[in-house]
Simulated assay, not measured.
Amino acid sequence: MRVLVLGGTADGRELAAKLEARGIDVVTSVAGRTSRARSQPGARVGGFGGVDGLIDYLRASEMDAVVDATHPFAARMTANAAQACVATGTPLLRFTRPSWADRPDADSWTWVPDHAAAARAAAKARGRILLTVGRQPLPAYGGLPDVLARVAEWQGDPIPAGFRILESRGPFDLDDELALLRDEQITMLVSKDSGGDDNAAKLDAATSLRIPVVMIARPPLPDGIEQVTSVDKAVVWVTAVGGGRA
């Protein structure tokens, strides 16, 4: 059985390893936006060339199934995978971490649909804003006067006026997040609903210090995609699709 895992996340790496341990032939594809992704052993790095390119790849590689384990905000790749799998008749599963919307403190956050709306909400804050939205969306926040932007990896892009870049890769624990928010005198946290536990300590810290949170909601999934929120359930799905055969 051959499975294409659209990865680039820690969960994608874990899923690929568990499938390979069961004797399943796994090809992991990553966009390669960070050095960690580019250095993943055996990974296919780079795009497919849109929907048509992915269709051609699925047919040429004779994939039996696709698991989309990309970031919850990789909406274009998810949409492309949905279209390509329909066109080729390839079973598709969307794996993503549980949303933070179910947290007890989520009702106190300002939920917004996109980065433009998040920037407008953040503009109402006084003081320093902590951005934890990744590197690529930062230009949307260029008008904010006092920003600390934490990114996993900085690639030498121009830094907007009023910004400082904190290059740091999680997961982070609660004590570290509390210290960061206090030391930097953060008055607002802007994040996106990546979900899971690894990077949730910043939310616990913000709640503890009563710092307001602006949260970007996840983009909706294309219609008809089956979804699971645990690696083990994804393994069960792949095994079922393969009928138990490796």
Results as ranks from 00 to 15, higher is better:
G8P: 06
A10E: 05
D11C: 13
G12N: 11
R13S: 06
R13F: 00
E14F: 12
L19A: 02
A21V: 04
G23T: 09
A31N: 06
G32L: 10
T34D: 07
A37R: 04
R38T: 06
R38D: 07
R38L: 04
Q40S: 13
A43Q: 05
V45Y: 02
G46F: 03
V51G: 01
G53R: 05
G53K: 02
L54R: 10
L54E: 03
I55P: 09
A60L: 15
M63I: 01
V66E: 01
D68E: 10
D68C: 13
A69Y: 03
H71T: 10
F73L: 06
A74W: 11
A74C: 03
A81I: 11
A81T: 02
A82M: 11
C85H: 09
C85Q: 15
C85I: 09
V86W: 04
T88A: 08
T88F: 14
T88S: 11
G89M: 00
G89E: 00
T90A: 01
P91S: 05
L93Y: 10
T96G: 12
D102V: 14
A106Y: 12
D107H: 13
S108C: 02
S108I: 06
R120T: 07
A121Q: 15
A122N: 11
K124F: 02
K124Y: 01
A125P: 02
R126G: 15
R126M: 11
R128G: 03
